[in-house]
Design a binder for these strands. Sequence first.
DNA 1: CGGGTACTCTACAACGTTGTAGTCGAGGGA
DNA 2: TCCCTCGACTACAACGTTGTAGAGTACCCG
Lengths: 340, 340
Amino acid sequence: MSVTLHDVARVAGVSIKTVSNVINAYPHIRPATKERVEAAIAELGYTPNLTARSLRSGRSGAIALAVPDLGLAYFAELAASVIEAAEAAGLVVLVEQTGGDRERELELLRSPRLKMTDGLIFSALGMSEADVASLSVGFPLVLLGERIFGGPTDHVTMRNVEAARAATEYLISSGRRRIAVVGAHEGEVVGSAALRMQGYLEALEAHGIAYDDSLIGYTTLWHRSNGARSMTELLEREVPFDAVFGLNDTLALGAMRVLQVSGRRVPEDVAVMGFDDLDEAGYSIPSLTTVDPGRAWIAKTAVATLVERIAGGDVVGPPRLRLADFRIAERESAALAVAR
Amino acid sequence: MSVTLHDVARVAGVSIKTVSNVINAYPHIRPATKERVEAAIAELGYTPNLTARSLRSGRSGAIALAVPDLGLAYFAELAASVIEAAEAAGLVVLVEQTGGDRERELELLRSPRLKMTDGLIFSALGMSEADVASLSVGFPLVLLGERIFGGPTDHVTMRNVEAARAATEYLISSGRRRIAVVGAHEGEVVGSAALRMQGYLEALEAHGIAYDDSLIGYTTLWHRSNGARSMTELLEREVPFDAVFGLNDTLALGAMRVLQVSGRRVPEDVAVMGFDDLDEAGYSIPSLTTVDPGRAWIAKTAVATLVERIAGGDVVGPPRLRLADFRIAERESAALAVAR
DNA sequence: CGGGTACTCTACAACGTTGTAGTCGAGGGA
DNA sequence: TCCCTCGACTACAACGTTGTAGAGTACCCG
């Protein structure tokens, strides 16, 4: 069927090892031999069988990336960044979707589906601290996300608390005092929602603003519709507020829509702050002020960290935690100076 | 390092082939033997080496998906659907990004990077009919997109012309006559832009509406910013129009923003029609009326078609063209009955 | 001119798995 | 009783590649 080293060797009149040597740029080959081999390779259209190479070398040149769902803009953009970073490192990326479901996440870690990869970048959404033991797998693993801290693996993530605090303080600095939240998770203590809420609370406290639970919109998921529904509920409560902090951009955009439909002006009546800095945040009406949590850096660093672990072999250091820098992407929806 | 059949065989006191037989559910094994082997597998935590299995069998259980960019919502949602369909078929998916660049697309087809996969689902954006010969590769390949027709491979795509015509007629049926277009590609004769323009033209002609080039906004890319810029140019021309057909949702949303900033009401003053039915189309302000081109069906069918080719081996039939059904997703931005 | 060394190339084994061809014994039919 | 079949298992080769060890030749230095 396909052309192998044997075929090339036969045509070139050399041993297969010599062909292999030519391909792998082994230095001690006579130019004449090299030419003959290269001619044979070109003539037959030989390409190396990566599977065989992988079996021999123990490396596949592929890594796996597990995310909840590529339909979620944040994870799509994260995956794009990871694939780009991996390509720069000469790796291809196998993408798995877990649906953010704990069972499927655990199963993915156990299953041999990704045994053909050299390692895994894992964005967990359903697992919690209780599942930390499941992360002790026999292959290089870099964890993303904020469900689990202090686990046995390298972990690359964002500064959720600090960034959410900065975002909230940004709103406060523009004179807002009644800051609603959309996307909190009831009773949750781990995960992005909890951490961002913590940052929100720290900012309130630092500025002597009392916490008001009636300003908090709880959701289960972080889809646009959840943001919209949550904002509808907030409006029905008829508690006054002059700003909304969407715990991610998608929620914020959903909420912003409802605000506008209800007749509120953004940012004049209500300022809106997001979190994620999706591509889309720059093009909404008004454009969305949000937190850029350093997604590109996270992707690049996750790949680099995984590559280090893969190359390290038995040289295993302690698990590392690497945190991205963030910045506030200042746009229209929470402009500092507006006529009110 | 890792546990192999040899290790299991030693522990169970049988030959490696027997272990292999147990794993592959070979029927003629004594229950006692089977139990012993299974105990050894459990004890050692053996998982099969997929690379070796793949080398032996010639199948990897992985397929590749090449798209321009996961940062583009359409392709992210397409990839999500493909991965889901592939998982249902027991396959994993390796995702490549080409950037929509012709050179990188051609290189991807030539390179051995995906030699470890069983086949490729390829969404070409930069290639054109002239490159059709490059599609004659030695592995199963299913083409998506509308850059190339009549190529040597199976092709799954949408009914661009019919769908664009239906979308335009939808606008016409609501009384619009001056229908602007955003996203046309200057002088292009292949690709989504050209096909959708053709549908637009057919609709105009069928209803006796004269074509007016001053209503056409040309762009090179289909990003939100291109839609916005193109609409800005249209407004500067000061030609009247009562509807806009964005050749995809992203363009339409970008254009809609500029329309609204300029003071036009949507859909009262200007109706807006998109194409793609992104998740997002349901949540914009106003929600976007658009064409659902059958993305989920395309993904499922592409995987099924590829699986057939992979299983077919040497039984190669003629290339097949499979077209998805479309529908108009009726929402607010082009509501049929509005006060004007 | 002898001995070492560098160069060029080859044979063989191995990576972990599975297909093929067997071995060996038990059981059944004639 | 003999032959044949079938069940249970094993030995070996092969998938395509690369590392290791080594063979053979040419060359340089003393």
